[in-house]
Design a protein around this nucleic acid. Sequence first.
RNA 1: GUGGGCAUAGCUCAGUUGGUUAGAGCGCUAGACUGUGGCUCUGGAGGUCGCGGGUUCGAAUCCCGUUGCCCACCCCA
Length: 421
Amino acid sequence: MKFQAPRGTYDILPEDQAYWRFVTEMTRQVCELYGYERIDVPVFEQTGLFERGVGETTDIVEKEMYTFRDRSDERMTLRPEFTAGICRAYAERKLHGRPQPLRLYTIGPAFRYERPQAGRYRQFYQVDVEVLGSQDPAIDLEVMQVAWQIYEAVGIKGLSFQVNSTGCPACRPGYIATLKAWYEQHLDGICDDCRRRYGENPLRLLDCKRESCGKIAEGAPRIAKSLCGACNDHFVQLRSYLDALGRPYEVNHRMVRGLDYYTKTVFEVWAEGIGAQNAVCGGGRYDGLIGMVGGPETPAIGFASGIERIILTMKQEGIEPPEVPKPAVFVAYLGAEAKDAAVVLAQELRSAGVGAAALWEDRSLKAQMKQADRIGAAYTLIIGEEEVKNGVVMVRRMADSTQTALPRWEVLDAVKGGGTA
RNA sequence: GUGGGCAUAGCUCAGUUGGUUAGAGCGCUAGACUGUGGCUCUGGAGGUCGCGGGUUCGAAUCCCGUUGCCCACCCCA
């Protein structure tokens, strides 16, 4: 039986690890710079949490969740996103008793059963950033800044930031009514999908990708004009902060988001050239969610950013991550006696914090040298019969092919600081 | 769930109107250099031609089915 990775999953092979290290490390640094603390929540939760939190009628809940019954017959679901789990933790662990607002971030895998395509997988990794316990638009700005700075830190340039307001339970229903009323006269101009959306999810009419529908959507009434006082003030304030910082952004009144919990601010970050799934980041405010999953009414905002899509963008822009550290020295030997000495020497080096690799296959010196070259060792230490007899080690500096025989006790000092590890 | 494209060596790909033992480059490995990497040269290993069936004297090539991958829709990170 030959096994294969499940559809939509992949292996992060050694040669790709440099990207992953770099992105997660930059994320950690930026989040800490802003005073965000790391939290990790379970990979699976009770199914009901996502049904309530993400929304019963969303695509995610209706057709994309990995749901199963465990051995106690409890319905469990692999997390399709992070926000619901973090809100659950906030309520369950009484995190509202800590200094507010609470700034959190996490990194890990999420799962959705979808057809894979460019930048989309069934197991995918996200950076997730959340602030719980504040409704100030300055917090919206701060959260967006975290995203911006992460992309800056990994060197991505060609991104565009999209912002909109989706209103709140007080004003959104009115807008939806207005929108539907307006679309009533345009039903024959839109596509079949859009006619379905008209009934099921009218906000979705706005972001249809078809050119003909797009033209119509462009002329549709804008939510900005239907916002209640509080939502309008919030959006105006956020935009003035963005302007003050000189951040390039676009108010995109046709951007709506597919999760039910969003209120007021929503935003996305788009990248070009990574395929149809161009949203590298999506997020927004969810002032009602924590209350819905059993916590105190608490305003909050956050975003999730897809690591695969970040890396895709980096590759698209030709950004190379720093190399993963390699052993500083390679230990080569010839003969059984020399092997004994080499095994001990390699371990001494490692104990002293100097990375040491070897082949241990009793291969020719040439093969060992070749290996040393390939792994990028700064020094190769050669031990043969001669060296064993004289208590010395041949220390060869690979960069300029110079070598000298040194007494064993001088080897460590000679080699220290020679490599990246 | 729907639509399109592609499956030949570890990788990237050739393979004529169906015709002997399916090739190249890279990579791996060994030697040239009996104890020295990168360059060069020479040799070697490595293939159920995705899988199953059919047509045919003969199939990598034609037909049917199937699986997988890629891309797009829906939707989302």
